[in-house]
Write a protein that binds this DNA or RNA. Sequence first.
DNA 1: GAGGAGATCGTCT
DNA 2: GACGATCTCCTCT
Length: 211
Amino acid sequence: MTSLGRVTLLTADFFNRDPRRVARALLGKLLVRRTPHGILAGRIVETEAYLGKGDAAAHSAAGRTARNAVLFGPPGYAYVYFIYGSHYCLNVSCLPDGVAGGVLFRALEPVAGIEQMAEARGVAEKTDLRKISSLRKISSGPGRMAEALGVTRARDNGKNLVNARSDLRIVHDGYRVRRVTVTPRIGIVKSAEQPLRYFIAGNPFVSGRSL
DNA sequence: GAGGAGATCGTCT
DNA sequence: GACGATCTCCTCT
């Protein structure tokens, strides 16, 4: 069991604004999963903003469907989608009810429940968790962090991330981010040139092959 | 360490 | 029926 110390739950208002501001503000916050076996937590070190209007890369670009309905709903809710036949990705809805927009969580720095997350990823016995190169395999990438926290569409899509009773939520522990780097988003073709990817400068847990 | 290709299935056309 | 907000393995250096 692990304690996170004193933390503050984010509010719906935090997410009720432009996804670009939310993506930047989310850096340094903690994503927390409560399980029967203890707390899993990671610090958010990399995000991407997906805008509702004029963003061809966003899932909401073609209008509302059963799949992307959460993006059009109220702010602070989890949008989980399945990609490439094997991975889940976690987003949070932004902007008021009726307006599409969201932020994709791309990478976490493991903070609590590290062994349990490594086990969920299938890397617990193969690697030395004292090494940063091994810890990177846990949650440095959208599919990886979703698997580490046990995020699936069936379990978490539409879940309120700013409700104290939720088993998946986002909190602030007072951590301050020194410097943020902004680059184009990864893995997309449409609107690929827009600088909408944000990460903590110099943080070793940001996704990608090397720094 | 870097780069490339295959895996695999839900969602929308 | 095509494609994708990715990951891992394999090869080459």
